[in-house]
Amino acid sequence: MDSIKQAFDLLFSLDKELFQILGVTLRMSFFSTSISCLVGLPLGTLIGTRQFRGKSFLKKLIHTCMGLPPVVAGLLVYMLFTHYGPFGRLNLLFTVTAMVIAQCVLIIPLVTGLTASFVESESRPIIETARGLGLSDARIILLCLSEGRASLLSVVLNAFGRSIAEVGAVSIVGGNIQWKTRVMTTAIMLETNKGKFSFALALGIVLLILAFIVNAAASWIVKERADG
């Protein structure tokens, strides 16, 4: 109870650092989710609609990557961007950009895999009808995406949920630097380690509220467009 009160106090105190952390969190999740969806939605649709050799192997690979532990993704990206790594010269380690890249490694397979499953199960009649009309492949992909937007919204929200809740990868490549790469989850971890449990919980509640608002907004947008 105390934490809930503290959570609202925090929010309404307009604490500068809290809002900075919220801002970084949202920026990171926005870019991770958008990039992952820009890549994963078309890719998943392509895999779901096409028959090709090695398809079942590819699907197994994607499903394996869907379960990739975040720390492993973080480690991979860390090794790529560390000073002596192949992309060390870009100086991206401990930036939000690196956090977004690490999260994309995690989330692109998730979006691709979920989209492919959805497309395989639900879009057969759509594709059959659209191909029969001689529409282009690009057009068919767009049609599948727009017809299945309710299911696809849940894919997108899954991606967003994974991004905003993820801590392993972002703490490795982001470093939890105050005023720079600290996000809600790494802040919660820090407070927990300091033993400030109720403050950590308060941050957790703020995170939940944030996630709820984004979810509600997304379903509202989709519903509006579907009705209109």
Binding site: P125, I126, T129, E147, A226
Partner: peptide
């Protein structure tokens, strides 16, 4: 024209 055509939105 498929046997079970689909109605788009």
């Amino acid at each position: 024209l498929p046997q079970h055509p689909y109605a788009f939105r």
